[in-house]
Design a binder for these strands. Structure first.
Length: 441
RNA sequence: GGCUGAGUGGCAGAGUGGUUAUGCAGCGGACUGCAACUCCGUUAACAUCGGUUCGAUUCCGUUCUCAGCCUCCA
């Protein structure tokens, strides 16, 4: 039985699916305008982690993750690169897919694109206006947050209290601070679509309400995303969907809300303005996909990860140790429920505990060890990405090692050590095992 | 100001009302030309002040500190 922390009720709960035979799970996907950074990577790994566990215990799981391909950031990127928004979103969507793969993240079962649902969004807005939940102001359509009495129920916000410490300037066209855009006009050559309110484009929050319902129907089991999406994005989704269906119960939309924590650099959030963004592709030049994956899963998904090089190096060490143990075994990665690893994961996805468990098992193997390792591999080792090395570098390394061997045979230990230092500087570690020298990065 | 969440050994990180994980690093040793790898051994912690209890790091409350959100954000 899976236990999972539900952000909506703020407690760990037993997961009771609406239909045992078909689990429905939606997770907010990327806005495709840039290559992904390590923080994004964590979010996608966590989302996938839950999908993997669900698929491990239920016969059918539909995991949907949307692609936001219309958004101000994309418009900006298109302007900068002097191409169309479609070019931008296609380009970065493909990079996103490659990045997922390099980290051993499975592709979601469905990846709906926002721009494929424009008509549906327009219909949705019309109904919200008709039912008096939204209002029009000069080509803008806004959701009236006062119309949904449970507004803010996910993040624990209360409209009256919010006003006290209000940091946002009230846009003149908004009736209430929290009212958000359902549709906004596109001007000056900005991309857009014709609508009853003029040429424009949808607000960001809308797509998830529309696409999750159209792909999964509501209510569905789990809705996930990064912690920062709780407010306003997810609260807005709840408000829209519930208002649309005349409900006041957030669980008429999604039953369990799943949010992952952030990744901190030097005890600070990673952000572009601080210039401390770590891009995944840069790490992939130095670490294997599974090593990065292990580093990202070495902290419980709800906690912040203090990201630094030490963490990666530790993950690398652990990953190698496990690989050494498994390399001669014939294992098929799969989720074996009757393992200690599976039990750790079924308890709110306790990956750090599972990592500790596997290390204990390697120290003193039980007769069930293969089953444990298969489960471990299923969750932690889906990546095939290896650090890339070009042939020139390899032949240079091998040449140096040969020189060192000769020096050692002749008793020229100073020279041998010099060569080893040189290799160390190239990030190459050498090991003399049974008279043979092996090297690794 | 409001809302979340968190404070565990040098670092990372689970967990538990009493026997106090795990890894990395460190230290000692075996191995080695020296290292690395591997193996054996080992040090070390539960923010603060109260309360409950035979007993609390674990439960309750106080204080302090930190992070995230409240504005695009994973």
């Amino acid at each position: 039985m899976l236990k999972i922390y539900n952000s909506l009720t703020k407690q760990k709960e037993s997961f009771e699916p609406l239909d045992q035979n078909h689990i429905k799970y939606y997770s907010c996907g990327p806005t495709v305008y840039n290559r992904i950074h390590i923080g994004n990577a964590r979010a996608f790994i966590c989302a996938d982690l839950l999908a993997k566990v669900l698929k491990g215990i239920y016969p059918k799981v539909t995991y949907v993750s949307n692609i936001t391909d219309i958004d101000d950031k994309i418009i900006e990127a298109a302007k900068e690169e002097k191409v169309s928004i479609k070019d931008i979103s296609n380009k970065y969507f493909n990079i996103y897919l490659e990045d997922l793969e390099s980290l051993g993240i499975n592709k979601p079962d469905l990846q709906p694109f926002a721009t494929d649902y424009i008509n549906e969004m327009i219909d949705y807005i019309e109904k919200l206006i008709d039912s008096n939940n939204a209002y029009i102001h000069e080509g803008n359509v806004l959701f009236d947050t006062t119309k949904f009495k449970n507004y803010g129920c996910l993040s624990g916000r209360n409209l009256d209290e919010q006003k006290a410490g209000e940091r946002v300037n009230l846009e003149t066209y908004k009736r209430n601070v929290n009212d958000f855009t359902l549709w906004k006009p596109s001007n000056n050559g900005e991309p857009g679509w014709e609508s009853p309110w003029g040429f424009g484009r949808p607000g960001w929050h809308l797509e998830c309400s529309v696409m999750s319902e159209l792909t999964l129907n509501i209510p569905f089991d789990i809705h996930g995303g990064g912690n920062d999406l709780k407010f306003p994005h997810h609260d807005n989704e709840i408000a829209q969907t519930c208002a649309y269906h005349g409900s006041s119960e957030p669980q008429d939309f999604a039953r369990y809300w799943f949010h992952n924590g952030f990744l901190n650099l030097d005890n600070e959030k990673m952000s572009k303005s601080l210039g401390n963004v770590v891009y995944l592709e840069d790490l992939l030049d130095v670490y294997d996909g599974n090593q990065i994956r292990l580093a990202l899963l070495s902290t419980h998904y709800r906690q912040p990860i203090p990201w630094n090089k030490t963490l990666l190096e530790q993950a690398k060490t652990v990953s190698k140790k496990i690989n050494k143990f498994t390399k001669d075994l014939n294992l098929t990665p799969k989720f074996n429920v009757d393992t200690l690893i599976a039990q750790d994961l079924l308890d709110d996805l306790n990956t750090p505990k599972a990592i500790a468990t596997i290390q204990k098992l390697i120290q003193s193997p039980s007769n069930n060890i293969e089953s444990e390792l298969e489960t471990f591999q299923y969750i932690f080792e889906g990546s095939k990405h290896k650090v890339r090395l070009d042939d020139n570098k390899i032949s240079e390394i091998e040449k140096l090692i040969k020189e060192r061997d000769i020096a050692r045979k002749n008793g020229n230990y100073d020279q041998a050590d010099e060569i080893r230092d040189k290799l160390t500087k190239m990030n190459v570690i050498i090991e003399d095992i049974n008279g043979k020298t092996v090297w690794k990065i």
